[in-house]
Design a protein around this nucleic acid. Sequence first.
DNA 1: ATGGTTGAAAATCAA
Length: 282
Amino acid sequence: MPRRPAAPAILPARQALRIVTWNINSVRLRRPLLAELVRHLDPHVICLQETKCPDEHFPLEEIRAFGFPHVAHRGMKGYNGVAVLSRLPFAIRHDDPNWCAKNDCRHLGVELDVPGGPLELHDFYVPAGGDEPDPAANPKFAHKLDFLAEATAWMLGRGPARRSVMLGDLNVAPLEHDVWSHKALLKVVSHTPVEVAAMAAWMAAGQWHDAVRHFVPAEEKLYSWWSYRAKDWEAADRGRRLDHVWCSQDLAGALTRQHILKPARGWPQASDHVPVLVELAL
DNA sequence: ATGGTTGAAAATCAA
């Protein structure tokens, strides 16, 4: 096995910071793929969603052994769950909102210790919203819209984001070419106009910048998720871009790279989402 | 075309 020396605890001056978001769909089942992710992308920080792991069962020591001594996790039995794995020290933010008063482990905020001062980092797992895009008929869709509205109001109240990164499985594909067929998905949860508008309002509330589309023209197809239900996900290529990385305007000039690790969808026992990397020269 | 697959859990439920 190839070996690489562990990254230093402090990010060296002028080394770009690599941050990954990944809906891992069970952190316990996919621990080996986490090591594979590290081998391919060598990130300093990994933000996970859908860990599906109560805190008392989180595989902490194994993950530390992958080279991530600093770990925060917020999990529950069966569903949801987020985690931040880091080579660099961070402080957990404890006063972020309890979204929709549900205590359902969909958000973890940290202050990352990087050169030039702390970087605020928010890891989100937005409700998927069920199948029927009607909040009156489908409580899950109502929850999704409520969640998006609360997050928007919170960010409006805080003012424009500064020195911040906002990422995660946001479960909305906002642009026409964030889905395989804009027309076919207009009434499919994740791409309905009401969700797209809600996401646009959220982005505008913090004056966030799309750090991935920064590098990829809006006219180009770009996905981070492919359904398990396709016979051949790669041949059909009916994907959606549900996973996002946003940065505050003051960091837009620091963006140096994005990478969506599409081959991860073909790994054995893959998640239906693939890791998304953004690199910032802070 | 309303299917199809996966994970955690043990009823199915959520995605």
